[in-house]
Design a protein around this nucleic acid. Structure first.
Lengths: 177, 177
DNA sequence: CGAAACATGTAAGATGTTACATGATTCG
DNA sequence: CGAATCATGTAACATCTTACATGTTTCG
């Protein structure tokens, strides 16, 4: 999807409160951010270069161990302005959730086609396990009121993700025999 | 998202039962398919060319009016095989739903940040209107049992979409004051 | 007759994935 | 010391969007 270059804002957002290396960012995409966004390290390093050229972030290298040079990035004032401008802009237009399973289902016409049940049970497994994972994360990150108010946005979207999985599972159960 | 070239299968699926022009396909992406997939005409025409080169579809031109040449495409046996092979393959891996609103929310830390309520009410409007639209479609397309069993997959995903919107709205209401 | 919709394409550029490459550090 | 992880990059390629381009038919 060649589009709005949202990765730019993600990187700015992640670097806003703490300097990080490209590798740190990559790791975040494998865990926390990975729930709702994806990016490969090749793209991250490239984007960091570009953001620095444009003056949105600045870098500082630190020697780690004997030889290893790590590059730490921080957001500049200019970058901070771009970030909050984006945050303030109404998003508009709901996104299209491209889902391969949905697509396959669309092309099945016959109610009694055996593949429907096979597909539904595969999805059931996947969504049940996703739900378990999300609940575990919520428990881990947001046990108490204090942790919730510290990262309230994150709490909200995790809560939404859990509700969505429950709903998805409910839908599957309705049609799975 | 440069990935699995699913457009290929969508075109094959749409051409499976009826010959269509590139323009017909484009129109479908603006209406029916538009609910869960997107593609521009430039991409569609290109992909049709490629599919024909690969022998998955074949074309026939018909004169429309005095001068206008329309190109109609149909799936070949080879194409049909590729399509059903895809349909049979388990999808695996749940997709990441990239949603700009979710992203913005993630970067808001303070529970009392005014922007949360602004964003939620924008989303409320959008999802309420989306839900109304989906309900209208369901009513239009799947009033009776017969129409459901004719395009059962489509009925299922429309039903899912409606449930998802309801759930989304429920979530917004919980946090919107 | 003019505007909107029909109809089909190409080109440039942005975004994203996969593969290729290399080296350092940690930990068992 | 060897494997896993840390750490950073480039190259080739596929996908997708935006813009450019052109001509036809329908309908009020």
């Amino acid at each position: 999807m060649a589009q709005k270059n949202l990765l730019k804002y993600i990187l700015l957002g992640l670097l806003e409160n703490e300097k990080k290396t490209g590798y740190d960012l990559k790791k975040l995409f494998e865990t926390e951010i990975g729930e709702f966004w994806s990016a490969k390290h090749s793209q991250i390093y490239l984007e960091l270069k570009r953001l620095e050229e444009q003056g949105y972030i600045s870098s500082e290298t630190g020697l780690f161990g004997n030889k290893l040079e790590k590059t730490y990035y921080t957001v500049t004032d200019k970058g901070r302005r771009v970030l909050s401008e984006w945050e303030e802009t109404p998003t508009g237009e709901l996104p299209i959730n491209k889902d391969e399973f949905i697509l396959k289902l669309y092309f099945i016409h016959d109610k009694n086609d055996k593949r429907i049940q096979e597909m539904l049970s595969e999805q059931y497994r996947l969504h049940v396990s996703k739900l378990a994972h999300l609940k575990k994360r919520k428990n881990l990150l947001f046990k108490d009121e204090i942790s919730r108010s510290k990262n309230y946005g994150h709490f909200l979207i995790l809560d939404l993700a859990i509700r969505r999985e429950k709903e998805y599972i409910g839908w599957i159960k309705q049609y799975l025999h």
